[in-house]
Amino acid sequence: MILQQLINGIVIGSVYALIAMGATLVYGILKVLDIANAGAYAIGAYAGLFLYQATGSLPVAFLGAVLFTGLFGVLVQRVLYVPLLDKPPLVPLICSIGLFIFIQDLIRLLAGPHIRAFEAQLPFRGIELPYLSVNAIWIAIMATTAVLLVFLWYMLNRTKLGLAWKSTAQDLEIAKAMGVNVDRVVAFNFLLGYGFAAAAGIMIGMLYNSVFPTMGDMPAYKMLAIIVLGGLGNPLGTVVAGLLIGVVETLVAGYVGFFLPRDAIAFVVLIVILLVRPQGLLGQRT
């Protein structure tokens, strides 16, 4: 029973990490809270669903939707954020909230307000043991998330591009002066960030068998809790915070039968931890 709950928590938590990773990457470089990243989550889910219905192939739908949404992120960055960067931080933040609302309404206009089912056929079966059942979608989610996060870790810590990313996050002006084409780093950052959000959207859409225009609402709030908890702009912290919130949420909801709605638990965790560590779990005191 506890093992089952733990696995549930880890699955949910790793998807949370994925959702928040896009915003973390963007914050790391631009110091902008990118609420619209939760819009990318919904775009990804819809793109994935339509591509799946059109092609019948899950890998094609997944990769296609991730790429499409990532390119959308590159566009957003070029058209919206870069021109606003030398304005006070509130300006890009408001712009990002506006974009989020715009995305949701655009989806409503194009695809209708109703909930669509996302029934995916996976080519393998789940695990059924007497005390433990892990269905196929969960296995797919865990594996995909692990691959994406390991890919990101490798990219950030073992490649020249990762070094450029970190330098740009630490001091954009000096990174430029050292020869880093920061325009390209920022564009790549959005490609990755929006792509990750899309991946999460597809997987959650499949998990709950539903895709709808406002599906990004809850991730938008939770994403904020997770990136603050992870120490703002810290990718590793985001993974830790995502897993923590996923696990705590599942355990509390499963055992305590909390008087709070499940989705509020993330914020209880956030508040408690920030009282003790105002800089977040892995953030640095400044």
Partner: peptide, 15 residues
């Protein structure tokens, strides 16, 4: 770059 090591800073110089 404060959170890079000395050697990583030098590598950035030779980027």
């Amino acid at each position: 770059f404060p959170d890079l090591t000395v050697e990583e800073n030098l590598r950035m110089g030779g980027y």
